[in-house]
Structures are given as structure tokens and as C-alpha cells.
Design a protein around this nucleic acid. Structure first.
Lengths: 208, 208
DNA sequence: ACCTGAACACCGTTCAAGT
DNA sequence: ACCTGAACACCGTTCAAGT
């Protein structure tokens, strides 16, 4: 029996223990589960099983289920910010850009209903530290809106109220539309029509 | 041993078994728990314990936890409708009445945050039967808003768009404001200020 | 008709112990 | 440093059995 091929490499058992990046894998699996089977279906046990890892192992990377949900919410806010920004710029900023932003917002919520609910469902405690978190994913997405407003004010397109209050007002509007659609309060097919209507009335309300 | 006083009444053991109205008691206890300790704290076991009844007994009156939550949501919609209607009438209808309605809506949400979340958090499947449910608590609250809009249109206060679409637009706005406050996106103290601002801009957007 | 007691399958979380 | 196995306390739900 010459040269028995060793079953395990001498130094490390196949690159760490099980995964190259377990935290990242956990986050992806959580998002996937939420998207395909809803929030109720997300259990740590199931995540561990799918990843071929003991469930206790997960606690090495996230303090608890809350922390994992927080990460899911953050990921959602980053994606949302990116899509808002792209819609705004692709439509050439200004008034058409702003309308595209509103539509993109609602479409994000409709495309990822459960993910959106994790972001706003009260499951994750928002605003832990009120300071120094201006670059956190949530505030960052909000900032895109504020910037668009300020720019339109400078261009004489929007009345010169406090940009922050204007942004809160508008965020509330699109958020409300998104939630009504998610709750089935109006047929999902009517969502775009409502956004169009809302864009008209909103413009009439905030024009300079 | 003459005339031994019977320990139990001959006919019925102290008025039914344990409660005069267990379903009602369950609903009240559920609302109370949600209001004081949050949604997470609501468990059927705990409800049964507080009511001095076995937990299996609860299933005689509500099919499952979902059904109890549905009842909680309905109760919330009825209360909300009543408060909207009262605000509208107490403020003398018309424009001041409408503004009072908006304020009352947001204040209801702020006063009962967890209850409000049960109504809109996606925990209870809305719009089961799309028909014949116009008198269900949810649609009924919505109808108060629609009526107020139609009345203002007739009085020449609001532009004559489709009242339903106008109502959806406005509901989305107040709902969004409420959610932002509940999520702590803006300080609860600033809620009234935002509502005032929103009322102004909204009026500018929908005036006839 | 209404309720109890015990059981089942499932959670999140912890902790000693392994490599 | 990272992971496992077994355990703990807690759920919702069911069901035979009691009155």
C-alpha cells in the first residue's frame, strides 16, 4: 500500500471549517428565504440546515435572529437607495427624474414585499444611535430624496420649504402607497396608476 | 347532619363553566397585551393563563392565533372609523374637519402603535373576499374618508377627480406619516408638525 | 356544549466539549 | 477561532377524555 492518498489536507480541513464566508452566506440565505417563502418561514434552524452547518454555529456571526434581520433590512435599504438614484439619473433628474423615483420606490416594494416589510415592519429597532449614523443604509436612502428636492428647489421647480420636511412628506406618501398595495387595499395592477395620479397631485402641491 | 349546604348549585356550575363571554374576554385580553407589552408578547398560552382557562379551551372560540389577531385588527378599524368620524364632525366638516381627520388618524396610530401594526403589518390576510365586505371594519373606515371627499367636492372645496383615487392617495399619505412616526424616523413630538405641513401641501394639491 | 391534561412538532438560545 | 451535540424554556396546535 504505497503512497496512501491522505483524505484530509495536512494543514487545514478544506479551507476553514465549512464556508468561505458564513456571515455572507447567512445573509443571502435569509434574504432568499424571505423573498420566496415569507418572513414566517425564516428560522435560524432552517438557515443552518440549508447551509450545512449546525445552528449553534450561526451565533458566532450574528448575536441573534434580530441581528440577522437587521442585516437584511440594511441590505434592503442599500438596494433601494441604488435603485432610487438610478431612476433619478436615468430619467434626467428634474421633474421627470423625480416621478421616476416615486415609481421606482413603489416598484421596489411590490417586487420585494416581505423584504420591504422587514425594513419597515417594526421588527428591527430603528434609530438606535441618533447621531453619527447619517451614512447608515436607511438615512442614506432618505438622503437621496433630500438631495433631489434641494436640486429641484435650486432649479425653481419646487417651493422653498424646509427640504427635510418636504422629504418626510414625500417619503410618507410613497411609503403609504407601497404599503396599501402590499396590504392588497388596491389591486396590484392599479399601483402604477395610483403612483401616476399621486405624482400629479404631489407636483401641484409642492410646485414653486 | 341535617341540611348540608350543597357546594355546587344543582343546575349549572356557577354560570356556564368559567366565563360569561370567553370570546369577548379573549379579545380584550389580546388588545390589552398588545397595547401594554407589544405584539411579540401575545401568546395564546398567556391569554389562557390570565383568563384562568386552559389554553386548549381558546380553540373552541377562535380557530387559531390568526383568527384572534384578525379580530384585534377589526376592533382597531372600528375604533379608528369612530374617531375619524368624530373628528370630522366635531370640527364642523369642510376643510377644518378634513384637517382634523388627518390629525386624528395619525394620533390614533401613535396612541396605539402595536395595535396599528396588527392592522397593517401583513400579519392578517386582508381582502379575503373582495365582494360583499363593504361593511367590514376596514372598508368601513375607508368609506368615511371617501364620504368626506365627495362632500367637499360637492361644496367646491376639492377638485372633481375620481373620489376613490383621491381617497387612496390621501389614505396613503396619512398612513405613511403614521408609519414613519412609529418607526422613529422622525421624533414623535414632530408628528403634529408634519401633519400640519402635510395638510397644507395636500390642500394645495387637491383644491378645486 | 364547553373545558382539561397530556402530548407533538417546532422554535430561539445557551453551553460544555471537541478540532 | 470556529464548530458540534445536547439541553432548556418556550411556542401553536391537536385530541382523547372528562362534566
Amino acid at each position: 500500500m504505497p503512497m496512501a492518498r491522505p483524505k484530509k489536507p495536512a494543514r487545514k480541513p478544506a479551507g476553514r471549517y465549512h464556508h468561505g464566508d458564513l456571515p455572507r452566506a447567512m445573509l443571502q440565505e435569509a434574504v432568499r428565504t424571505i423573498q420566496t417563502r415569507g418572513i414566517e418561514a425564516l428560522t435560524l434552524r432552517c438557515v443552518g440546515e440549508r447551509l450545512g452547518v449546525s445552528r449553534s454555529a450561526l451565533y458566532r456571526h450574528f448575536a441573534d435572529k434580530q441581528a440577522l434581520l437587521s442585516a437584511v433590512a440594511d441590505e434592503g435599504f442599500r438596494t433601494l437607495r441604488d435603485e432610487l438614484l438610478r431612476a433619478w439619473e436615468d430619467a434626467g433628474r428634474g421633474r421627470p427624474g423625480f416621478e421616476a423615483m416615486g415609481l421606482a420606490y413603489v416598484r421596489f416594494a411590490v417586487a420585494h414585499p416581505s423584504h420591504y416589510r422587514v425594513m419597515f415592519g417594526g421588527l428591527v429597532p430603528t434609530q438606535e444611535e441618533a447621531e453619527t449614523t447619517a451614512d447608515a443604509p436607511g438615512p442614506s436612502a432618505f438622503q437621496v430624496l433630500v438631495n433631489a428636492i434641494v436640486e429641484q428647489q435650486a432649479a425653481g421647480l419646487v417651493r422653498k420649504d424646509d427640504p427635510l420636511q418636504l422629504a418626510q412628506f414625500i417619503w410618507a406618501l410613497v411609503h403609504g402607497v407601497a404599503m396599501l398595495v402590499l396590504d392588497g387595499a388596491l389591486p396590484a395592477a392599479g399601483a402604477d396608476a395610483l403612483v401616476t395620479f399621486a405624482n400629479e397631485r404631489l407636483r401641484a402641491g409642492i410646485a414653486a
